Simulated assay, not measured.
Amino acid sequence: MQQTYFAEDIRRVKKGVEGQGVCKFLNPFCETFGYNLLKVGGRQELASLPQMHPVLLAIEAIFNSRPIAPLSSDPNDCKALIPAHFIIGNSLKALPERAIVAENDINHHDEWSCIIAVKQRFWHQCSREYLSELQSRTKWVRDQPNIQVNALVITHEDNMPPQHWITGRVISVIPGKDNRVRVVEVKTPKCIMRRPIHKLALLLV
Rank of each mutant, 00 (worst) to 15 (best):
C114M: 15
P75N: 04
I10K: 02
R137Q: 08
T32L: 06
S113W: 02
L134P: 08
P96Y: 07
V40C: 12
G89N: 09
V40Q: 12
P196V: 02
K199C: 03
L38H: 14
M52E: 10
E8R: 08
E8S: 09
R43S: 03
N107E: 11
V101A: 03
I171K: 12
A80P: 04
K39E: 07
M193R: 07
P28W: 01
R137K: 13
L202W: 05
I192W: 12
V186P: 00
V101K: 03
R66V: 13
V205H: 11
R194T: 12
G19L: 06
K139R: 13
Q163L: 14
S72F: 03
V101L: 12
L202G: 02
I154Y: 10
F25L: 04
N179D: 13
V40F: 09
Q2E: 08
R128A: 09
F29N: 00
P70N: 09
L203P: 05
P96E: 01
Y5I: 05
V186D: 01
V118N: 09
G16D: 00
S65C: 04
G19F: 12
G41C: 03
C191D: 15
Y130V: 06
L200P: 07
P83E: 08
R137E: 11
L49G: 04
H109Q: 11
L95Q: 10
E157D: 08
P75D: 01
N107H: 14
N36Y: 14
S65D: 05
N104C: 11
T155Y: 12
Y130Q: 10
D158A: 08
D158F: 07
W165C: 01
H198S: 01
L57I: 10
R194M: 05
Q20Y: 14
L202C: 10
K139P: 00
V205G: 06
I115S: 02
P75C: 00
K199W: 13
E45P: 06
L134V: 02
D178K: 04
N36S: 15
T4V: 14
N90H: 15
I166P: 00
L81A: 07
H124D: 09
E45S: 15
L134R: 03
S172F: 05
F122N: 01
Q3W: 08
A99N: 06
V17L: 15
E133F: 11
Q44F: 02
K139Y: 09
K14M: 14
Q51F: 07
D105Y: 05
Q148A: 13
E60M: 15
K199V: 03
V40K: 08
G176N: 12
L26N: 00
S132I: 13
T32R: 13
